[in-house]
Design a protein around this nucleic acid. Structure first.
Lengths: 213, 213
DNA sequence: GACAGCATGTAATGAGTTACATGATTAA
DNA sequence: TTAATCATGTAACTCATTACATGCTGTC
């Protein structure tokens, strides 16, 4: 409890959250991060090896080394202090979400490149969204078939996955529309009829009015 | 062109993209990043002060110092090398997008906290989405009134903003639904009727089938 | 017995963040 | 003339990434 103790990061709490269910080896933690958290808290694997060490240093987790042949495998488990920290953190307001999309940056500055480049970038965006939707669908089907690995967490997972699914849907639909729209342009710098573009915005706003009021 | 030259990051290209339009002072760059890029490439302001220096070091931009009272103000502009680099980058495939949502991490591990905590977190998520929608609506209305500051970029901005808007909409709708759903739970750990939860997933899938096939 | 892929890490480096500092300008 | 806020940065720190390394295990 020294005052020099570092603050835990969201990544710390993500690991703690996993440890709250049961002890995990680092590799299992990495696999689990890749399978699920990766959609809303992506981190490189090496981080998943580093973070538990920090948790142990702070007294939030315990490490036990099991030999596997000539190598060691470290299995981490949670301490009461870790559990308290997790509970406290869950009561705090979440930070603002953060989206990083290189495809949108490229779109924003597309005027400095060719129309073909922009279309290729949008198509890539579309593929990424479609890949995500495919992965989510596979998970959904596990649930429908009753083969989900953590049935006691289904209520939480359904809520979370629903957002991810709908986001992927919106991105896909948008990508199709955007590709068609850009396809109508002469090039990336010539502005098409302003009236039509403004109408797109008004329609977007309008859909909302209908659905909320 | 020394081989020790560092690679440019997406942030570098974002700044280059702005410089492609005209010279900017660092403060203006920061303001512009805050106003627009922030939605899909959020960066701390200090970064916006550091990045142009790296661009200058690499020969991608030029800095000119203008005194303002006893202080200096640095104005950056683009070099031909910078313009070439930007064009080349636009032709490359965009990296995978990346979403970081602490609210979703808290949802994923909500079983370790109270229902009240989870609801508070979801409400915060909702507020964040609503704030974003409000900001976007204000920008939209500028366009509708014909008061947008860069009318020559309207075709690009309309495409980009439409995605941001629809994403905000989905998040809002989801948040409302999620708050209602969690409201029906006894607590964060008791699993409600599995059948109903699975139906939610099936319906999500179903909406898609209808709209695409 | 070799090869692919799974499992388990370490090291170096750097982009980005937070925190701090202070001059200029405007409104009250 | 304050006070607030706009404008303009610097410094320290660290989380996270990329790149590397190597043991284990099943299979052909």
């Amino acid at each position: 409890m020294s005052s020099t103790e570092r603050e835990l990061t969201t990544t710390s709490y993500a690991i703690l959250g996993l440890l709250a269910a049961r002890p995990w080896s680092t590799y299992e933690l990495a696999a689990q991060m890749r399978r699920n958290l990766h959609y809303f808290w992506p981190r490189a694997e090496s981080n998943v090896y580093a973070e538990p060490k920090r948790l142990v240093a702070g007294g939030f987790a315990r490490a036990s080394a099991e030999p596997v042949g000539r190598r060691r495998r470290t299995v981490y488990s949670m301490t009461p202090k870790g559990r308290r920290a997790l509970r406290t953190w869950l009561a705090e307001a979440p930070a603002d979400p953060r989206l990083e999309s290189e495809a949108l940056v490229k779109l924003a500055f597309a005027g400095n490149g060719t129309k073909a480049d922009l279309l290729a970038s949008l198509r890539r965006f579309r593929e990424q969204a479609e890949a995500r939707r495919r992965e989510l669908r596979a998970i959904f089907e596990e649930y429908v078939r009753g083969e989900d690995p953590f049935p006691e967490r289904i209520h939480i997972n359904v809520v979370a996955y629903r957002l991810l699914w709908q986001t992927a849907e919106v991105e896909l639909d948008w990508a199709d529309w955007a590709i068609a729209e850009v396809g109508r342009w002469r090039d990336t710098t010539t502005t098409p009829k302003r009236g039509r573009l403004v109408r797109v915005l008004v329609e977007a706003l309008g859909e909302h009015e209908r659905s909320t009021f």
